[in-house]
């Protein structure tokens, strides 16, 4: 699934529909002699919602960490347009800080002038009552909500989500998909990886990562 880069879209923040927001070319990763990813290329366009599934250990998180810049590939290149939002599989928070302090801290990281969007996300994900609660006292689901809020609070052009709804109850799961659909409508390129996908119809494209390479799944409508 090789792709061709489009013209620079800096003036649109990478959010003009159809423009390539993230481009990965020839990405490979190996640990020792074992190749996890092999010459993998794909593009993520603005206003699309793409899923990658695969078995445990297939290399999904490794791929996402490379795309997010957290992990260096053994070979290949990644380029992106606009701001990046990244929600890692492992909840990475500071136990001693409260929810509100996390928002303040990451607001400074993103250079946000205000936290209106962050506070709106907290309301919509249903954990506004825990703003002053230290992370160490939050449930697993609430921690995951904060983990996700941090990835979304700066309205990114590219959003990379690693198992984003693990630990969510059904209502929060549905709200998550509402948010994902909104982000796509606003021109955000959303990539979700998961070992299980229940709602294939929610994705524009779905891929399976196996043997270090991506394989495109048939559209949801043609599924048996």
């Amino acid at each position: 699934m090789a792709s061709t880069l489009t013209a620079n879209t800096a003036d649109s923040g990478g959010k003009a529909p159809g423009n390539v927001a993230l481009d990965a070319r020839g990405v490979s990763k190996r640990y020792g002699r074992r190749w996890i990813l092999r010459d993998l290329s794909f593009a993520l366009t603005a206003g699309s919602l793409v899923g990658i599934v695969g078995e445990n250990g297939a290399g999904k998180s490794t791929l996402l960490r490379i795309l997010a810049g957290e992990l260096r590939p053994s070979a290949g290149a990644v380029s992106l347009e606009g701001a990046l939002g990244y929600c890692p599989q492992t909840v990475i928070l500071n136990d001693s800080l409260t929810v509100a302090q996390h928002l303040d801290y990451f607001g400074a990281a993103y250079g946000l002038a205000d936290l209106r969007r962050a506070n709106d996300l907290v309301e919509r994900l249903g954990y506004a009552g825990y703003r002053k609660t230290p992370v160490r006292a939050l449930s697993g689901g609430s921690k995951q909500k904060l983990n996700l809020t941090i990835a979304l609070m700066h309205d990114p052009a590219v959003l990379l989500l690693d198992e984003p709804y693990q630990g969510f109850d059904w209502e929060t799961y549905l709200r998550f998909w509402e948010l994902a659909a909104e982000l796509r409508q606003r021109g955000c390129a959303v990539l979700i990886i998961s070992h299980l996908v229940y709602d294939r119809s929610r994705f524009d494209h779905l891929y399976t990562l196996a043997a270090g390479q991506l394989h495109r799944e048939p559209p949801a409508a043609s599924q048996a």
Partner: peptide, 25 residues
Amino acid sequence: RAWNAGGRSHAGPVGPVGPVAQAPA
């Protein structure tokens, strides 16, 4: 350190993030 400064960049492509080399097929 981050290999890709994507989180900081608001415009323009970022990368490449690693050396381009041939991986086995």
